[in-house]
Design a protein around this nucleic acid. Structure first.
Lengths: 347, 347
DNA sequence: CTGAAAGCGCTTACAG
DNA sequence: CTGAAAGCGCTTACAG
């Protein structure tokens, strides 16, 4: 089936092509007599503008890009991505725009994906999982790609001076939630609190870890009870096993995400530890599962959908050439559930 | 920064635009003397072809579309989607193509997404989560959109006759895995086996449920111990609670996905039931978590990445006009872990 | 308020 | 093997 074109609509309505275009875009007035004629003709012929042609004429693709560079097993258990994408989608759909998504395994594939995007496929991209001295800001400049980055800290803490300008930061911090969790545990009576971190190359994981150490120090507790996880269930179980083998063992564990916490919880139970009587646990991300475990897992909502919406809005402003250098989004909030309680008596 | 264009490359290399295009596409021979001149010029100017222009000239967008119409909380815990997408990506990247993704909440938004796609945004789409008498095949025809559908059963079981032609089916069946699970449990000595299904409007969920009933009947066991879940953790917990309240209670539960199984497992444990001594459990999807719980959750690998790759290949053939009406992919396979064992003695 | 025309940056018959 | 030209289907100054 052949596409109907704007020319056919113009012919049928007895006007010029330009007028049809203007009637739809509203960029210039069209008389009240012609407009309905045009819409009727378009309706009758089942016309909608070709995005390819529009893209070529306007140099706007009405598409933004997102490259996720994580191992599939991590993506598949991290509720952040789908929620974030759903949040993006809401804003994009309203603007009649689309989201081009790539899931890549290596840095090489990641570069290739951005390079394809830069060939006039997207108007801009959102950078997730920012690392310290991330290589992508430089790549964006080389490729001439407009970008915004989602980060848990101010740009000066993340990027070399050269890379700092031109990329607006959507700042979604983590730290307050972690110190709230530590406060909660300390107030319940805990002193030996451990942290299972995420992969430290990510700024958001490093931030959580630093926030943990800071909070512990403030309470004059040992800030060094930190072991490195990598957000996978496997690491959650392994690190938990190590921590529980120590003497004395920690009475509470703060995990950098829910999956590790759930694997840890399951492991602890298999050792006949009761939760929370013998061990308190907290997660991060508020996955659907955490609310419905028994006991429920205390976790942190990061409002990923809201963050996605703000990221897209900021990107659209950046594409239009007027984004603020930084926009702050609502901080995370702790969701208290039954997985935390007072430490065991003899402690 | 202005894009370099093919014209500039042609000028610099001292050839016509057509020759530059041909040198890159290889659709016609270019002499060994001119080719390097062209590539050098392109390299020097940092040129890559504009996809928008190419799309307009060729009526090919080099993009395929995927619309996921599920509640975010379900998407966020279902490992199928990210794995499937990663599998799509592998094939797409190789072909220099992209994936346009929409996550929608309502049927209305879903139609809107496909309508946007049909405005020359994609070459074709993959239909997931097929329902019986699914409305999308008809929509695809109305919109003139090429499509393939992923389904666990032959087209004649899914679609009205009118909608059946033109849409190749990638057949990934579920049923064998479910009967294997039932066999496994029966062989271990179980007789009262229950099933917590997924949302029955999806053919894949209905198939699992039917396969369960069939397998139970074959073993001359009660095939009606089926309760309706909806793939969420909440339903997994609630349905498990109901089942465990029955007298006599089931000694094994087959869940239609891992999340429900994990919530169920957690609930059972909170009732002081031991797994698998007091209750055997199985999941479906083989999420990253299931392998690393303690005990590990017996589950079913659906090879989502491989299925994604085949789906894309089939779609690309369909776009080229020569897809087979049906292509079968490898069946799922059961991954046996510690969550199943013999039923309690007194049973 | 409307039309005629140029232009976006490619690809692809058509000649030679 | 190569060039000149038309065309893909829009948008947008430029005139009127």
């Amino acid at each position: 089936m052949q596409r109907t074109t704007l020319s056919q609509v113009a012919a049928q309505a007895g006007v010029s092509k330009g007028t049809v275009s203007l009637a739809y875009s509203g960029k210039r007035p069209v008389s009240d007599e012609t407009r309905p004629r045009i819409f009727d003709a378009a309706e009758e012929l089942g016309w909608t503008a070709s995005e390819s042609a529009r893209a070529l004429a306007t140099s706007r693709t009405a598409t933004i890009g997102l490259v996720i560079a994580r191992r599939p097993e991590v993506i598949s258990t991290d509720p952040f991505f789908p929620r974030f994408i759903a949040g993006c989608e809401a804003v994009l759909a309203e603007a009649g725009m689309g989201l081009l998504l790539s899931v890549v395994a290596t840095a090489e594939d990641e570069t290739a994906a951005y390079t394809r995007y830069a060939a006039g496929r997207v108007d801009g991209v959102i950078l997730l999982d920012v690392e310290r001295d991330d290589r992508r800001p430089r790549l964006m400049r080389e490729l001439g790609l407009t970008a915004v980055m989602l980060a848990p800290a101010r740009p000066e803490r993340l990027l070399a001076e050269d890379d700092r300008d031109g990329i607006p930061v959507v700042l979604a911090e983590n730290a307050t939630a972690i110190s709230e969790l530590v406060d909660l545990l300390v107030r319940a009576g805990h002193r030996r609190i451990a942290h299972v971190s995420g992969p430290m190359q990510y700024v958001h994981a490093a931030e959580r870890s630093e926030a943990f150490a800071r909070a512990m120090t403030e309470h004059e507790l040992d800030p060094d009870l930190i072991v490195d996880g990598d957000f996978t269930a496997a690491s959650g179980r392994a690190r938990t096993a190590e921590l529980l083998d120590r003497t004395p063992r920690p009475t509470a564990i703060v995990y950098a995400n829910d999956v590790m916490a759930i694997a840890g919880l399951s492991h602890a139970r298999s050792r006949s530890l009761r939760i929370p009587e013998d061990l308190s646990l907290t997660g991060f991300d508020d996955s659907d599962l955490s609310a419905h475990l028994s006991p429920g897992l205390t976790s942190v909502s990061t409002r990923a959908a809201a963050v996605g919406a703000v990221a897209v809005r900021t990107l659209l402003e950046a594409v239009a050439g007027n984004a603020p250098p930084m926009v702050r989004v609502d901080g995370p909030s702790v969701i208290s559930r039954e997985s935390i309680g007072p430490p065991p008596q003899h402690d």
